[in-house]
Design a protein around this nucleic acid. Sequence first.
DNA 1: GAAGCTATGTTGGATGGACAACCGATTTTT
DNA 2: AAAAATCGGTTGTCCATCCAACATAGCTTC
Lengths: 235, 235
Amino acid sequence: MIDQENMISVLKRGLLFRNMEDSEILDALGTIASHRRTYPKRTLVMQDGDLMSQVGVILSGNLHLFHIDANGNSNLMEELGTGESIGLLNAIGGYRLHISAEATSETEILFLNVSQLLRKNVLTAPVQIRFLQNLTLATAQQAHRLTRKLEDSIRRSTRERLQDYLSDQFHKAGSRTFSIPLNRQDLADFLFVDRSAMSNELCKMRDEGLLKFDKSNFELLIEMPITEEEQDPNQ
Amino acid sequence: MIDQENMISVLKRGLLFRNMEDSEILDALGTIASHRRTYPKRTLVMQDGDLMSQVGVILSGNLHLFHIDANGNSNLMEELGTGESIGLLNAIGGYRLHISAEATSETEILFLNVSQLLRKNVLTAPVQIRFLQNLTLATAQQAHRLTRKLEDSIRRSTRERLQDYLSDQFHKAGSRTFSIPLNRQDLADFLFVDRSAMSNELCKMRDEGLLKFDKSNFELLIEMPITEEEQDPNQ
DNA sequence: GAAGCTATGTTGGATGGACAACCGATTTTT
DNA sequence: AAAAATCGGTTGTCCATCCAACATAGCTTC
């Protein structure tokens, strides 16, 4: 259970409370905050098929959002950390979840009633309007992430997917040496490929001198192919 | 060039102007409408890399949104008709287009200045607030479509993709007999598969007695596998 | 109507990747 | 510490799909 001051600094990380003073955030929370809940490691936070009326913001911990497809494959759609939100699109649009969310460490989530902001006939408070603007931005950002994921997975070979992923991690870390937050199985699920095939490809790349690795620690030995690295204007 | 009355009825088809009176729509257009433009058949409307400050609403005609990937494959991301909008996510989030849009018939587009609604410090007019709400809904809907497309393309075989697509068309048409709006090459691009492989699979399905077809006219001969047909609560 | 051009189907070869099965190492549980 | 589970790597088989190339029919164009 984190304290209020911490909470505000966490909320400021995402787009939902961007450009808002601490007092405004508290004000906004007054009308939309619902409840907080802590989930132990390895518990389901949300489940495929759920209808959400609220969006969740991760105050601490981590979530894996995975989609089980018709063939029984587990596909890791997102890997979320502190400050990121879950169920935004579903809460806003009234769509059922197509994913389940599992806490990969003890995770505390703050739930916000956002759907009311879209139904109410009259919104007057400037804070609410500001929040609504942020809500739209956050939704667009989420959609943009989906677009990237879609583009990254279309007709791409296992090697290309690995290169994309490692290149991403390289840019995030700002260093040729970094460690990734996923084990092999989860990485394969994230890239939508078979684990053994991926393991194979990874070792081939090592043998070709492209990279080194030990467990989750990687070192890139050459320039990764240019990935139209376009940074998010909304961060 | 369609007239104003027609235009309003077209605008009402999408989510952007949902739940608004004709007078309110005109009011809203007064502040956000930018310009209209007509594109001849087979011309590019927008191009990969463009930065959009406006969203386009199709007043008449059709667009193909395609993404050329690193291997030179053309991937058909969306096929849009009258009343649908283009560039919503990009205009809102400030993201560059990753697709190009081509008019497949003469197409008239109305451009709307939506980004100002998100930057302005004070929004007062109720109509603007209502429109902002709709903007959020429309963005979520767009994101939901992306989610479906992503889920439909993950680890799915050519046959499964075809079944998904035909099942969709079946539901849209409300009849076992329907004609699809894409030729073979475009359909293959839409399903992210090779044309010849798809053609092959289609004929196999015909030989197995699952369906009949002639050019773009299809007839389903058996129940298509259940596709969690969940209809859009926002239509 | 001849000459192109387009749309669709067909074939064959090459191969990437899924799948199952197994091993050894490491970690977790009791 | 023993037992059990997890994790990563390796191997071999098999099939789906890509790719290139060609056939054919129907349109379009001059």
